[in-house]
Structures are given as C-alpha cells and as structure tokens.
Design a protein around this nucleic acid. Structure first.
Lengths: 108, 108
DNA sequence: TATTAGGCTCACAATTTTGTTCGTCATTGT
DNA sequence: ACAATGACGAACAAAATTGTGAGCCTAATA
C-alpha cells in the first residue's frame, strides 16, 4: 500500500532518521491507536471489550489498528486456551508500556 | 477542506472528547510538525532557517504547517521591525513550550 | 534592468489514511 | 437447521494529508 519511492515516504524516512521522536509519534498517531493502547493498559484487552470502549469503530478498522500495533511490536496477541471460539488477549510489550506514561503526560 | 459530517471527522471529535490525549497528539502529528517545533525551540525561528533544517520541505508545505501550528496556538508570528523584506520570527507560546519536554521524552 | 531575499498563497495532483460492506471459521445453545 | 459468538480479512470507496508548479510583494544590489 505504501509506495516505496513517493516523496511522501522519502520525507517520512528522512524524519525518522533525524530523530526517533518522529518515528515514535508515527507509532501512536493513527486515528484510534492511542486510545486503544490506553484501553488495553486499563484492562480492556479483548476485541469485544475494545469495541465497547470505542462505540463507533468498525470491526475492520479495529482489527487493522491492532494489527499495526502488533507489527510495530507495541502489543502482542495471545490465544486464550480452552475457549471457543478462540479468544485473544492483547498484551502490551515493554515498548508499549513505555508509551503509557507519555500518553498520560499528554493529557495535560 | 474538512467535511463537517464525515464519519472520519465525527470519530475524530469523539476521540477529542474522550480524552485531551487525542487532541494533543493530533496537534503534533503532522508530517513535519514536531521537527519544526523542536527546531524553533532550538532557535531556528525563521522561515529560511527552518528550510535549512528540513532540506526536502517545500515553501508551500512549510508555510502550511506553520500556519496550522499558529492556528492551534502553538506558535505565534512576530514581525521583525526595520527589515526589508519584513522578517518574521516564530515564537513558541506557553502551550508550545509545554510540548517540548514531551517531545524530548518521546526520543527514548 | 534583472536578480535576490524572505515569506508566503493558490490550484491541483499524488499518496495515504479511514471507513464501509460483505464474508469466514468453528462450535455451542435454541 | 440456524443464529450467535469472537476475531478478524478482502475489496473498494470516501476523505484527508502531502507534495508540486507557478506566482506575488518590496526594496536593495549587481
């Protein structure tokens, strides 16, 4: 979906190199991402729980954001044994937990 | 440019209400914004200085980002007297300065 | 007289991000 | 037999963000 050689992407890469700051921001700047992160940190770590917290989000959009968070190693998916259909828990990685206090900081 | 009633905008507003966090992030999540802010805080507070710091940015894009930062009252434009053509200085507001330590935090 | 400096703006095109609709899978309750 | 649950994925459409090309203004300077 991303064009390797668009000016857009090239500029983005440039900024990522200038300072980690820019990549850090891009990790949390998706539409629902910071809220999802925060919700998970509060214990709403299941797909259906997140849907309750974010009433207007569609399944597809939520799934997409979760996958991106996973790709960026901010969360990890874990199957819950002996559940049918198989339940999945989302767990923050160390990287993910590091973001939480910063997010809280931004609330002020 | 923004459609008042798009789902996109509505969801954005919803998030803004849930927590300041989300509006704070949207303030700094434009392509060059955080870097511009940081540069200004370091003393690169003129249009042409910013262009040196951000080699690939075009005049138009830089101008646009600066205007948005101004609209969000993160920076203020100030004319420098007795200059021809009239020079402009960008100055961080209190709100702007508050963001700097958070940005620095994100570098880690 | 042509150029430069400093700071922009407009209109439009390219890219990206968000949202929408529909479908899937395996099993349990009705 | 059929809906419901939990957790998505594909394909496409709508909207938003970024980038591009060209132009404008004033006064000093080459």
């Amino acid at each position: 979906m991303r064009k390797e050689n668009s000016s857009n992407t090239i500029n983005e890469q440039f900024l990522f190199q200038v300072c980690e700051l820019n990549s850090a921001i891009s990790l949390i700047s998706g539409r629902w991402k910071s809220q999802i992160l925060y919700s998970i940190s509060q214990g709403n770590n299941r797909f259906h729980l997140l849907k309750k917290e974010l009433p207007n989000i569609s399944d597809q959009v939520l799934g997409r954001q979760l996958k991106e968070l996973e790709t960026d190693t901010i969360i990890i998916k874990k199957k819950i044994p002996n559940t049918v259909p198989v339940g999945i828990e989302y767990i923050l990685t160390v990287k993910g937990w590091n973001l939480i206090p910063i997010l809280e900081n931004l609330c002020n």
